[in-house]
Write a protein that binds this DNA or RNA. Structure first.
Length: 291
DNA sequence: CTCCAGGCGG
DNA sequence: CCGCCGGGAG
């Protein structure tokens, strides 16, 4: 038994969240911006940042002409600031090589910095209504449960599930609504932790039918954060975002006193990533300050 | 502790 | 394929 498109899309019509990037008049570029921000980041944290962002930089050329440092500051504490850098680069590529127009073909979208298998299809589908499978963590979980009767996605590879979802896609123009509904169901009903099966719109679910069997744990063990280089990088970036002028090394050193070697490694990695630059007098600043 | 509209480099 | 890339909320 497969997922019935009609009952899912009908539910979507009345239960969909009123997210800002779904409003009328939102452009393909602005949808692309939302997809960058939503990579591994919950909707609630993205919404306010996205609203400020698209008001300030509504188009690819507007974004490309901003300084990298301003982009990193506007990104704020969304996390994974390399995404902000890639978004900036993506705007530059679109402005210089695509005549300011976001590509509508998956193959072309995939050539853009920061655009992978999910984001390319999400833009083609939600910005251009293309009939392409859109597979994110929500879709994988919903399909694993409703179709395969499993507690969660079997393999750690999302790409492998593309063919699965392709087979589920409606043949007509309702495909984008179907994909949006699949994602919405996973985000709000068929959640990872405590799925609300009592309000699920699907009349058949293989997982429910099988009595909600437990899985064998997550496909990939959750990664730690506390004490990692990522936490140190986050603290360093926090100091640099807050300062409009380059800061002394000593101001950075105080954010992580317990392990100087780790702190040095984190700072070096930020330099290597092109997120931070060192000035001629040895101080540090966000990369691309003023230009 | 877990999870979150992933992508990339090794 | 594997490990790393933030940070906040439940």
């Amino acid at each position: 038994m497969s997922i019935v498109s009609d009952e899912l899309v009908n539910w979507w019509g009345r239960a969909r969240r009123d997210l800002p990037w779904r409003a009328p008049g939102v452009t393909a570029w602005q949808i692309l911006v939302s997809e960058f921000m939503l990579q591994q980041t919950p909707v609630a944290r993205v919404a306010p940042i996205w609203l400020d962002w698209v008001a300030r930089w509504p188009t690819p050329p507007a974004t490309a002409s901003a300084s990298a440092a301003d982009v990193l500051r506007a990104w704020g504490k969304l996390g994974y600031p390399r995404r902000a850098k890639r978004l900036h680069e993506c705007a530059t590529v679109i402005a210089t090589e695509h005549d300011d127009v976001v590509p509508d073909e998956v193959d072309v979208l995939l050539t853009l910095p920061g655009v992978g298998a999910y984001t390319a299809r999400a833009v083609a589908c939600f910005a251009y209504q293309k009939r392409v499978p859109v597979v994110d963590t929500n879709v994988r979980r919903v399909v694993a449960r409703a179709v395969h009767g499993l507690a969660g996605a079997a393999s750690p590879s999302a790409v492998r599930d593309l063919a699965d979802v392709e087979a589920l896609l409606p043949a007509d123009e309702s495909a984008p609504a179907f994909s949006a509904a699949l994602m919405e169901l996973g985000a709000t009903v068929c959640t990872a932790r405590s799925p609300k099966c009592g309000i699920c719109p699907l009349t058949f679910c293989a997982w429910r039918a099988a009595g909600h069997p437990a899985g064998s744990g997550p496909a990939r063990p959750a990664q730690r954060y506390a004490g990692t280089d990522r936490q140190v990088r986050g603290r360093l970036m926090d100091v640099l975002r807050a300062s409009s002028a380059p800061v002394l090394r000593a101001h950075l050193d105080v954010v992580w006193l317990s392990d100087p070697a780790q702190r040095d490694r984190a700072l070096d990695s930020l330099l290597v990533d092109g997120l931070v630059e060192q000035t001629a007098d040895g101080r540090f600043a966000l990369a691309g300050e003023g230009g």
